[in-house]
Each structure stands twice: as structure tokens, then as C-alpha cells.
């Protein structure tokens, strides 16, 4: 009884994990720019991993495999958001910088704005270009 219940629950979690994983991958391929792609990939990555490894833990029962799966889950749970954060920070420091008011989106756009701007605006934008 409890065995079939665990099997059904793990099948359900595997199905949900597959759904989130595939939707994240479709977003990774189809979305138009880097930050939207990172949203699709980074958010679904953690949840799909949690669901699939949790389903495997239900299948494993009380054994050494359960402990190892727990270690994998814990590790991915900490490193996946950290990798996403490092990636977003590196992209923000490059010319992929997000567009903000008074802050050029790309290095080329910043140069063009500096060339075209009046002196007042120029004083605003001079120290907001690339570091």
C-alpha cells in the first residue's frame, strides 16, 4: 500500500519535473534577449532539479543512495542560484548592461548618446559608461 503510494507520488513528481524542465528549455531557445533567457533557465533549473531528485529519493528508500541524492540536491540547491547570480553580474558589467534611465544600454549606444547630447546631458552620462 505505502509502496504503491510512494511510486505514484514519485511518478507525479517526475512528470512535474519534466514539464518544468522542458518549458525552461523552450524558453531558453525561444526568448528574445539574454536576461529573459536567463530568467527561463535559472528559475526552472532549481525547481525541476528539486522535483526530479526528490522523486528519485522517494524511489530509493532508506539506503546510501538516499544520502547521496540528498547531497546532490543540497549542492545544486546552493550552486544553481549562485551561478545565475554570477552570470547576471558578469553580463551587467559587460556591454549587455540593462537599459536604465540616464544610463546607456550598450557601449555603442552610450557613445552615440554622448556624441549627440547637449552639454547638460553629457555631464550626466559621462561617468555612467563602462567602468
Amino acid at each position: 500500500m505505502i509502496d504503491s503510494l510512494l511510486n505514484a507520488l514519485s511518478g507525479l513528481m517526475l512528470a512535474a519535473g519534466c514539464f518544468f524542465m522542458v518549458s525552461g528549455a523552450v524558453g531558453l531557445v525561444r526568448f528574445p534577449d539574454f536576461y529573459t533567457r536567463m530568467h527561463a533557465a535559472g528559475v526552472t533549473d532549481t525547481l525541476a532539479t528539486f522535483l526530479i531528485v526528490g522523486a528519485l529519493m522517494l524511489l530509493a528508500g532508506w539506503s546510501l543512495a538516499l544520502f547521496k541524492l540528498g547531497l546532490i540536491l543540497l549542492f545544486i540547491f546552493f550552486t544553481s542560484p549562485t551561478a545565475s547570480h554570477a552570470l547576471a553580474k558578469a553580463a551587467q558589467h559587460s556591454e549587455l548592461r540593462l537599459e536604465q534611465p540616464g544610463r546607456p544600454a550598450t557601449a555603442q549606444a552610450g557613445q552615440a548618446a554622448r556624441n549627440a547630447a547637449e552639454p547638460a546631458l553629457e555631464a550626466d552620462t559621462t561617468n555612467t559608461g563602462r567602468d
Partner: peptide, 12 residues
């Protein structure tokens, strides 16, 4: 950065 993101997803 797109490539690094894709490689990260691939590895996970």
C-alpha cells in the same frame, strides 16, 4: 553569456 548559460543548464 548565452553560451555560458546554456552550458550551465547542460551540466545540471
Amino acid at each position: 553569456y548565452d553560451r555560458i548559460l546554456a552550458v550551465n543548464v547542460f551540466g545540471t
